[in-house]
Design a protein around this nucleic acid. Structure first.
Length: 260
DNA sequence: ATGGCTTTCTACGAAAGA
């Protein structure tokens, strides 16, 4: 079972990359973030034509998240797949994927950036993380296979940035942001990258400009796994291919394989 | 470190991203 997450920075501009990614990688489930389109402008039929069931939450101009699945999506009901406490911006969508005897709950997460610090934007980020923490805790109660994937907009540690000293005043790097992410993980989740790679860091985001050619980036796109999901984890990869092409997203897809 | 990119919008500059 292959599951990918990708902040595409506009689904309309990136649709050719998404199509190519699907043809190359053929993930069973693809989590998308930063669609930057309201519902009516999301190219749903193009995504369905790739062989996926699609649920989505769009918003005008900003944000927007989706889950694409080759397997049946259950709970297709807004009350079930929304985190209703975090609904004012389209940053969270969640569902149960029914994959015969090996189903799992999964969320596509686009956590607020929070810059600049010392503003209401940073406060919004922390508030949003508190609500995510509450939902994350609920999801552990049933001892299910739970997969939280997406753009978390937090570098967990200094080593998750190429230039940590340049990031000291950035919302992605604040002790408060990191502490809140740790609080969520400490409920009982595992950072899939660190579970497989305790000593190796790769970037999932590079600023537009020269950052990619200089390989100076951040690791901010994550998969958090419940214990049962961790037991099923086989591999993880940050795939840089589409980041190297013309007109790329500034993020690379992160791909995990879990046992069926 | 920033916006030096990129994308979006009741658009032609400003906001947001990270």
């Amino acid at each position: 079972m292959k599951i990918a997450t990708w902040n595409v920075n506009s689904i309309r501009v990136r649709l050719p990359h998404v199509k190519d990614f699907v043809h190359v990688q053929s993930p069973d489930v693809l989590l998308l973030q930063e669609l930057k389109a309201q519902d009516k402008d999301i190219p749903i039929s193009d995504l369905e034509d790739l062989g996926y069931n699609v649920i989505y939450k769009g918003q005008k101009a900003y944000n927007g998240v989706a889950i694409l699945s080759k397997h049946p999506i259950e709970d297709v009901n807004d009350k079930l797949y929304s985190n209703t406490e975090n609904d004012e911006q389209a940053r969270y969508i969640e569902c149960w994927i029914d994959a015969k005897n090996s189903g799992f709950r999964i969320a596509s997460i686009y956590l607020p950036n929070g810059n600049p610090i010392n503003t209401e934007k940073f406060d919004y980020k922390i508030d949003w993380m508190n609500k995510l923490k509450k939902r994350s805790k609920q999801l552990l109660d049933n001892e299910e296979c739970v997969i939280l994937g997406g753009d978390f907009n937090v570098c967990p540690e200094d080593r998750d940035a190429a230039n940590p000293e340049n990031m000291r005043n950035d919302a992605l790097f604040q002790p408060e942001s990191r502490a809140k992410l740790r609080e969520i993980i400490n409920l009982g989740y595992y950072d899939a990258w660190r579970a497989i790679n305790p000593d190796i860091t790769e970037w999932s985001y590079w600023d537009y400009g020269r950052a990619f050619e200089q390989n100076k980036g951040l690791r901010i796109d994550h998969f958090l796994l419940s214990p049962i999901a961790l037991d099923r984890l086989e591999s993880i990869e940050i795939n840089k291919y589409h980041r190297s092409l013309e007109r790329p997203s500034d993020h690379a897809p992160v791909i995990i394989n879990i046992s069926d």
